[in-house]
Amino acid sequence: MPKSLAEVEEGRTVRIVDVVAGRGAAAMLYNLGLRPGARVEVIRSGPGPVVVRTEGGTFSIGRGLAFKVLVEEEE
């Protein structure tokens, strides 16, 4: 069951399944390597922005946008 990036616990690694955001926001995410198929480690969650680490670097994603990034837990 995919859930949103905003709901992932700190320290877990997940895979992005889909980005259901507007064109501008999606393009921004894709350009930074945050696109379907990418593995991301959630560094910080809770109130405020979500911080994730990918193979390409560390990024902060606004909570509202994080809700629109659907992910799958790695087994």
Partner: peptide, 13 residues
């Protein structure tokens, strides 16, 4: 204004 478009920020080390 497209919601959330400007909320991705790279955090350099």
């Amino acid at each position: 204004i497209e919601p959330h478009a400007g909320t991705v920020v790279e955090l350099p080390r």
